Simulated assay, not measured.
Amino acid sequence: MNVEALLAKRVRDLRKAHGHTLDDLAEASGVSRSTISLIERQEISPTAVVLNKLADALGVTMATLFSDESEGRTEEPLARRAQQQTWKDPATGYLRRHVSPVGFASPLELVEVSFPPGESVTFDNVTRHVATHQQVWVLEGEMAISVGETVWHLKEGDCLAMVLDQQIVFRNPGRRHARYALALTTVPMTQRITK
């Protein structure tokens, strides 16, 4: 299944599993009903910002939208590079590769991102339905990451830990692509770890 078809299926399946109509999900996410419908019918490619809003309203991480639950759980702990799903954000051109084995029961997810120079993505979800902890490890290039009012300038080898509970802005201020790894995990709200 290609990534666009997978995203369409996952959004639709998760929406229905929660008992949401298109209008319900639109109200909860701030994404228009028509946009959600177009995504579910594979008529548009959603941006990272839209996917983040939908994931939050559905109570899952964005990475969950890229996992094919129809494959079921597996005991295979290996994800070969050729099997790892990639997705390109139509708004910025950033390329996201889901590194973790799909379906393997693990509280940790790994993602690799190649981020074009001069581009930025803003994730506005301040109130999240799940507590997501994330670390960004810059492998090549540089990134400026704003967490709320604080801006962190990361160079190769730097790693930033954050809780996704406020506005986050990813920006590549450099002249070449930046490449970084994301490690993320969710914690039930009752077990939320403080910053």
Rank of each mutant, 00 (worst) to 15 (best):
I168F: 04
D68F: 00
F170L: 14
L110F: 15
Q85G: 05
G59P: 02
A105D: 13
G148F: 08
P117W: 14
E140N: 03
S106H: 14
H133T: 03
F123K: 05
E69C: 00
A79K: 12
R81A: 14
R80Y: 15
M162Y: 05
E69D: 10
P101T: 11
G141Q: 08
V60M: 05
R175L: 13
F115W: 10
S67A: 02
T150H: 14
G118H: 07
S146V: 03
P173W: 05
V60N: 01
P107I: 10
G118L: 13
T127W: 13
L164S: 01
R80I: 11
L160C: 03
V121Y: 01
L78A: 06
Q134A: 11
D124Y: 09
G148V: 07
L154A: 08
F104P: 04
P173T: 09
V138H: 06
L58N: 00
V138P: 02
Y180P: 01
H177E: 10
W137Q: 03
Q134M: 10
T74S: 14
V111E: 01
A91C: 04
A144S: 10
R80T: 11
L65V: 01
D158M: 12
P173G: 04
R96M: 15
R81F: 15
A82P: 05
D158A: 10
N172T: 05
T86A: 09
E109W: 06
A131K: 05
Q84A: 11
G93E: 05
V111T: 15
T127I: 09
S100H: 06
